[in-house]
Amino acid sequence: MALTLVAPSVDLYAAWREAHAEWGPGLHEDGFGLAATDQVGTVEGFTAWVERVRTGAGTSRWIVEDRRVLGGIGLRHQLNERTGHIGYGVRPSARGRGVASWALGAILQEARALGLQRVLVVCLADNPASARTIERNGGVLEEIRGPVRRYWIELPAAGEPGVPAEEGADG
């Protein structure tokens, strides 16, 4: 599996639209930073949305394999108690391959490079696959608050024990 995290790009318009269509109408696509007001159905609207996401306060990445958009992952540089630091989503046809686990591991490296010492990652309590993804990446359950599981992941500084020298794709 040759996965990469890439900054959102207008060059991937057709590939992103294919992934977006696979989720279907009305379904939430975590990790893309898509708001209800974004008009991504036209090239102009998509271009405006990509620019907004690229210049926002966080780090947005698309999970890409062979120019096929498999999902998205976003890193908020400031803690949001409700949604945590990181949100991600993988299109249905790419699930079960370790894509989310790989992407979370990769974005954790970016969080560490930004100097974050720990991050909050949340998922729905009834989403065991996402819970496993977070736990595989060092997530420690803080609590279940209503419909949400809250996990903290410690990010030791580079060179400290527990920091891998290099990570590859799993799956």
Rank of each mutant, 00 (worst) to 15 (best):
M1E: 14
A2P: 15
A2V: 15
T4E: 15
A7T: 15
P8Q: 14
D11Y: 01
L12K: 05
Y13W: 09
Y13C: 04
Y13H: 09
A14T: 11
A14D: 13
W16D: 13
A19H: 11
A19R: 07
H20T: 00
E22W: 07
E22L: 04
E22N: 04
G24Q: 02
G24Y: 03
G31I: 03
F32C: 01
L34G: 01
A36Q: 11
Q39R: 14
G41P: 01
G41K: 05
T42C: 07
T47W: 06
A48H: 12
A48K: 10
V50C: 10
V53T: 09
V53N: 03
G58I: 09
G58C: 10
S60M: 01
G71Q: 06
G74L: 02
G74H: 10
R76Q: 09
Q78R: 15
Q78H: 13
Q78F: 10
L79G: 00
N80K: 11
N80F: 05
R82P: 09
G84L: 02
H85R: 09
G89S: 04
V90L: 02
R91W: 00
R91K: 02
R95G: 04
G96Q: 07
W102H: 11
W102K: 07
L104C: 06
A106P: 12
I107E: 02
E110P: 06
E110N: 04
R112C: 11
A113M: 08
A113L: 10
A113G: 08
L114W: 04
G115C: 11
L116W: 03
R118N: 08
V122P: 07
A125K: 06
N127A: 08
P128S: 12
P128A: 12
R132M: 03
R132N: 04
T133A: 00
I134F: 06
I134W: 03
E135S: 08
E135D: 09
V140F: 04
G146S: 07
V148P: 04
R150E: 09
P156T: 12
A157L: 10
P161F: 11
V163F: 15
E166Q: 15
D170N: 05
